[in-house]
Amino acid sequence: MKPAAFDYHRPNSVAEALDLLARLDDAKVIAGGQSLMAMMNYRYIAPENLIDINRIAALAEITEEGGNLRIGAMVRQRDAQDSPLLRARAPLMIEALDLIGHLQTRNRGTIGGSLAHLDPAAELPAVFSAHDAVLHLASANGAREVPIGGWSQGFMAPDLEPDELLTAIAFSPWPAGHGHAFLELARRHGDFALAGAAALITLDRQGRIDRAAIALTGVDMGPVRLDAAEAMLAGQVPGAELIAAAAQCADRVAGIEDVHASRDYRRRIAVVYTRRALELASQRAASGAGR
C-alpha cells in the first residue's frame, strides 16, 4: 500500500529537530526508513508529522575520544561496515553488520534506527549490550544517557520519550587482541535470526579468561546479557567442558515465541550458538586475531 498523508519536516541541525519534536504532536523521526517506511506503507502507523534527520551531518559521525567510541545515530550500517576505525576497534560490530538484511537495506539503514526500532531479533542491540554501551538522548529540555541494559522496556519499546531524539551510542572498545564472535541462525542470509549470540573474551598471560561478555538476540524482547555464564568463565582456562557448561546458561532465558520458532527451540538454538560463539571468540583471543 501507500503511506497515509503526513507533514514532512527536514531539519538541518539537532537543535532544529529537537524544536520540532517539542512542538509537533504525533511526530515520528525517520532515519534510514528501512523499518519505518514498511510500517507506514502497511499503515500499521500513520504519523501526522514525519521528521527526516537524514540531512543532519552531525549525527552521521564516528569518533574516538578519550578511549571511547561514539557512533552517531544517523551512521548508515554500510558506512559503519566500511569504517576503518570500527574495523580496528570493534570487530564484533563488523561481524554482526554483515548479517543485517542486505546490501540494499544496509545502504540506507542506520545504527540508531536499529536501536530505536528495537526488533527482538536485531543484531546491533546485542553487540552494544556485550560492549556495555550507553545511548545518548536529547530533547529540547536537555540531554540524557541510558545504559543499554535499561533500553528495552518491552516489545519494541525503548526507553525513549516522544519528544526525545537518539543522537549517538558510545562504548569503550575492548583492548587490542581480544577475541570476538557474532553467530546467528537464520533460514536465509539476511533474514531475521531465530537466535544469535555475541561474545567477547580477553585472556591473561597464563591463558585464563580475564574478562568475558555474552549477549543474546532473538530470545527475548531486547538483548540479554548472560551474567551467570560470564561469572563461570572468569579466571578459568577456556576448554570445551567449561564453555559448554557456560553456554547452558542460555537455556534459562525467559524466551519468546512466534510463528517462526517456539520458545524451547529458540532457547536450544541460543545454547548452541552461545557455545560456538564462545569457542570462536576464545580461539581468536588465543591467536590474538583481534590485534
Binding site: 526508513g33 517506511m37 506503507n41 527526516d52 540494499q104 537495506t105 545502504n107 540506507r108
Partner: peptide, 19 residues
Amino acid sequence: CTVLLDGRSVRSCLMLAVQ
C-alpha cells in the same frame, strides 16, 4: 524496486521522493 541512489543500491519503495 531496487535503484541506485548516488551509486548505491536502495529499495525505492522504502524511500520518499522528497528524500
